[in-house]
């Protein structure tokens, strides 16, 4: 009898390759071991990319999900984090020819998941006095649940439209869009935002102070409305004080 490590190695070879035969693979029950991990992977993808499931439908998602699940086995048993590379996979798949926005919609689903599971921390309240906030400016950072991305397709419009039931047909203008995902009051919120907002969020994420980030934004977009952007960031709980996480614990 091989030792445990050798047995596992042979078992995995037979599990991942349907062409492998032998005493184990010849038994009808071995199909259960070939199928179950893949089904778990596909189920996790469906859970983590619900908008792609809505767009493709269960059958088509199952087919593309199975290809991904075979190619990219989980590296962790924490399956709510599975599928980080699914958007890149979709971008390189034949589906992208007919659905050029699909990968970017998947990126928004992924940001949603990241925001949903991100750490808790008290956000800066929009009710705070403006002068008080100004005095704290050097300590303002992005909340752990804030995620943003510039997409080169109208994927935010398409993503938002697919959250409505019944789905109403849309004719998006074919242009890039910014998306900002946050978690105000414990529920994930997805907003379409301007290129100027994305520049400011990029700067903040890169470690700039809020004032420096505002300067970067205004230099790039002279007509940007800083007051409106700042009010929006407070409203969606995107900001906090840099030491708030520690105070929270």
């Amino acid at each position: 009898m091989p030792d445990l490590a050798s047995f596992q190695s042979g078992f995995v070879d037979a599990m991942v390759d349907p062409a492998v035969t032998g005493a184990l693979a010849a038994q009808p029950g071995f199909a259960v071991y070939r199928n179950t991990p893949l089904k778990a992977g596909v189920d996790a993808l469906i859970a983590n990319y619900p908008t792609i499931d809505t767009i493709l439908g269960n059958e088509a998602f199952g087919a593309v999900g199975l290809i991904y699940a075979r190619q990219f086995r989980p590296v962790s048993p924490i399956l709510c984090d599975y599928g980080a590379g699914f958007a890149d996979f979709l971008a390189a798949s034949p589906l992208a020819d007919d659905l050029p926005y699909l990968a970017n919609v998947a990126r928004i689903d992924r940001l949603w998941t990241e925001a949903f599971f991100a750490a808790d921390a008290p956000a800066l309240s929009p009710a705070l006095d403006t002068e008080l906030i100004a005095s704290l400016a050097d300590r303002i950072v992005l909340h752990p649940a804030s995620r943003h991305l510039w997409l080169d397709t109208p994927a935010a419009t398409i993503w938002l439209a697919h959250q409505q039931a019944p789905f109403k047909a849309i004719e998006p203008v074919w242009q890039g869009e910014g998306v900002h995902v946050t978690r105000p009051k414990g529920a994930v919120a997805v907003e379409m935002v301007s290129a100027a907002d994305i520049v400011l969020l990029d700067a903040l994420a890169g470690g700039a102070t809020i004032l420096a980030a505002a300067e970067v934004m205004l230099a790039a977009f002279t007509d940007a409305d800083l007051a409106e952007t700042f009010a929006r960031l407070l409203h969606c709980s995107a900001l906090m004080l840099s030491d708030a996480s520690k105070e929270h614990q």
Binding site: Q8, M15, Y33, P37, P74, P77, L79
Partner: peptide, 9 residues
Amino acid sequence: TCFPDLLPF
């Protein structure tokens, strides 16, 4: 690599 299943030995 993880195989989300309960495998025998």
